[in-house]
Design a binder for these strands. Structure first.
Lengths: 264, 264
DNA sequence: ATCATATAAAGGTATTACCTTTTATTTGTA
DNA sequence: TACAAATAAAAGGTAATACCTTTATATGAT
């Protein structure tokens, strides 16, 4: 207790040690191990008791570290025999969650989201037209046609329609050959998916048909390697959601409801 | 607690409960409480022991829930008297973290990031020129001038320069009056901040001066309410980072992927 | 063969005790 | 009186241990 007196004299020599909690240290070490390539996606870590021995800490401490990694989407925990702690592939989902929380707090509106989306997707389509592989062009065409089919069937649930629509947009992002765009697109879709409930006209065949023909037009532009046209059409497509006043005045809702994970 | 031994006989009556772990349940409840407005930023939760009593679980379980929330950036934990668990303001930092992890694993390159940034920021500048408030225009001008000053002083640390640069770009996003853009900008800055270390020329006065005049030009375009010009200048500004080959060839440190361990 | 039961590995939770950090408050001395 | 040092108390951090629950596989009975 008294030795603190010479802290001043040593103050310049030693660097202040931040009080790192044990579980944090463990979490960091595991993260590093992943980034260094010592652990790769799908690998299973030793069980909690062994980890405790390895790091020389108690099991609760190990578990806290795991919880932390789990919340970040770095590992996944499965119970039962052949269960354990597995390294997971980071999902864009995580970005979406974080983004969503941020948006909520900052009071972003759907209007703002649509606005961003329109230019973002337009540019993405532009790049896709320039870089899409043959396979991607084909996939896009198929998806667009699938959307058209569903569109003409009023009895088809809107979920199916939305699902295909999302797939199409993500494929466009993929075709842009830019992983950042893919990530952001997925994140946005995550937020948007909730808001799809707000689309008033998703059940109207006329509206659906219009959307479908939009997608077909975009797919064609990409196929013809016409970037400018692809951009224009995509912009119009997304923009239509504003003009048509399809999106209700709406601030991001106060309920996430992502807990029901057993289903879907 | 629990221990209903007659569960077997009741098995057909009650609906299967999805195996929700206790700590998850708690985490969700706390999240909900926040979203419902029952808890707001800055509030302090009861201490761990009390929470245990409230939820009727043990302290370790409570702690796991807290770790989970902490990792998501929802709460913050402080030790000592007057310490405790506090609701935190969601930071864009979290989005950046998630984005960064995603980029790492998807093998995104800095080039891709710059590519996205160039169009994203250009459009943001376009909107800023249309919507910036008077105060924002003023702030932008001040920031640009500050950058110019620092630029001419070689002895100024590069951190200072970068810091001002970041502030400028975030102010532009802010002026676009779109919270989504602000969020994404902050996230990107987070990732970019790390990579700033890769800027080879940040110490060169010539390069710094060039950057500074770029910003001044952008600020002017916004002040003159010339969206097209603002977009053009911002695009050139960001693009310059590619052309000038300032960013070294650099793939986000991907795993070594030494596939020695074939299987087990 | 088919269905049911047992087994074992691994995570989930509960208890309890004690350590560490942190800051307000008290105490003591110049 | 004023400032510095010791103290106390609140709250999180860690340890140790026992037992419960989940679940894939194996085993056995019909």
């Amino acid at each position: 207790m008294k030795a603190d007196s010479n802290r001043d004299s040593l103050g310049k020599i030693f660097t202040e040690v931040s009080p790192v909690r044990g579980f944090e240290d463990i979490a960091v070490q595991i993260k590093e191990a992943i980034l260094q390539g010592h652990l790769k996606v799908g690998d299973r870590l030793p069980n909690e008791r062994e980890l405790g021995t390895l790091f020389n800490v108690s099991r609760p401490t190990v578990r806290e570290a795991i919880r932390s990694l789990e919340a970040t989407g770095i590992v996944e925990v499965r119970r039962g025999v052949y269960g354990g702690i597995f390294i997971t592939e980071p999902k864009a989902d995580q970005v979406g969650k974080a983004l969503e929380a941020l948006l909520r707090f900052r009071g972003a509106t759907v209007g703002e989201l649509v606005e961003f989306r329109s230019t973002f997707e337009a540019e993405t389509a532009y790049l896709a037209a320039k870089r899409a592989t043959f396979e991607q062009v084909e996939t896009l065409t198929k998806l667009a046609n699938a959307v058209k089919e569903v569109a003409s069937l009023p009895e088809e649930p809107w979920e199916k329609f939305i699902e295909l629509d999302i797939a199409f947009h993500e494929e466009v992002a993929s075709a842009s050959q830019n992983q950042i765009r893919v990530a952001i697109m997925m994140a946005i879709q995550g937020v948007f998916h909730e808001t799809s409930l707000l689309l008033e006209k998703v059940d109207e065949v006329a509206w659906r048909t219009r959307q479908a023909s939009d997608l077909i037009g975009i797919a064609k532009a990409i196929k013809e390697r016409n970037p400018e046209l692809a951009r224009k059409r995509m912009a119009e497509h997304v923009q239509r959601n504003i003009e048509a006043d399809v999106v209700k005045e709406w601030t991001i809702p106060d309920q996430v409801s992502d807990e029901v994970r057993d289903n879907e």
